[in-house]
Simulated assay, not measured.
Amino acid sequence: MEDSHRWLDFPLRDGDIILSTRSKHGTTWTQMICALLVFQTPDLPAPLTELSPWLDWTIAPKATVFARLEAQRHRRFIKTHTPLDGIPVHPAARYIVVARHPLDAAVLLYHQGDNIIRERVAELTGEPVPEAKRGPRPELHEWLVAWTLSENDPREAPDMLPGVMAHLSDAWRRRAESNLLLVHYADLAADLEGEMRRIAAWLDIEVDETRWPELVKAATFGEMKAKADQVAPDPAGLFRSRDAFFRRGTSGSAAELLTPEEFAAYERRIESMAPKELLTWLHRP
């Protein structure tokens, strides 16, 4: 359902905000924060998926996505799951990469698989449901262990462990670049207002002090879940439940699903994929 080649034909504007994330790393949360900062009101003028289209998503025709973005007069903020090494890096655009504890993201990805209507995907893409997606799924523990040991090509399976670490490692190498901001899901959870203020300052967006309380409240988990019909990334009806998309997860809790031996194997595996500084940052409480 993704085609990063679209970026080659897309005309970027100065000031565009590109949100480059892996699945279940806080994409929708960061889109909402950007929407609140750009419009400076909880009453957004359109559903979040219209304000911040997923440019690579092939279910939405390329011409339609490009035309929608071309018509936007506000500062654009665009979603992609493509790593930075797969999209043009415009010197006058801003890029935000959101990271999360990999095991937590994996568990949420597993649950999202139960929420996707595969037949609807097949209907819209014209492709049959893949053999691997048919029949009963393995239990969460079995699936998570396999995820930690996966050796998939990051380009073919970007949401498996090698793909996640390739995406984050590439961003980490670029972290000193002035038009790149790294955001950690755990920081959003621990200090939402502080992180929203940090993002606003980095984007050179000024917010009246009187507006901050309502903007921060609108970005909380409870408020976003209450508006799932307007906020969930499901314009084509792929989810069984938009409400179920917002599944609360505690940072670091997924590690408890593995035995000590399995977690040690995960640590050994991931140590070969990324620099120690990134792993320390990624796995901190």
Rank of each mutant, 00 (worst) to 15 (best):
P138A: 03
T41N: 10
T82H: 02
D43R: 13
P91V: 05
R6D: 10
A35H: 11
P83V: 00
L108Y: 05
E2Q: 10
A71R: 09
L12P: 04
A171K: 05
L278W: 06
K24N: 07
P213W: 09
N115W: 02
T21V: 13
H283D: 00
Q40S: 07
R75G: 01
E261Q: 14
L144W: 15
P162A: 05
R197N: 13
F239S: 10
D208W: 03
A190M: 07
Q112S: 02
A255R: 15
E206W: 04
A236L: 10
F77W: 08
S178E: 14
T125K: 03
I87G: 01
A92D: 08
P45W: 04
R197F: 12
R197C: 10
S169G: 15
D170E: 09
S150Y: 01
R73F: 00
S23G: 08
I116W: 10
K24V: 03
M32C: 05
I199F: 11
L144G: 05
G113C: 06
R100C: 13
A254E: 00
L279A: 00
H74M: 02
L181E: 12
L278V: 06
R68E: 12
T280P: 00
T49S: 11
L203C: 15
L8M: 01
R75S: 02
R268Y: 03
L149H: 10
T49C: 07
E156S: 14
K276G: 00
P235W: 15
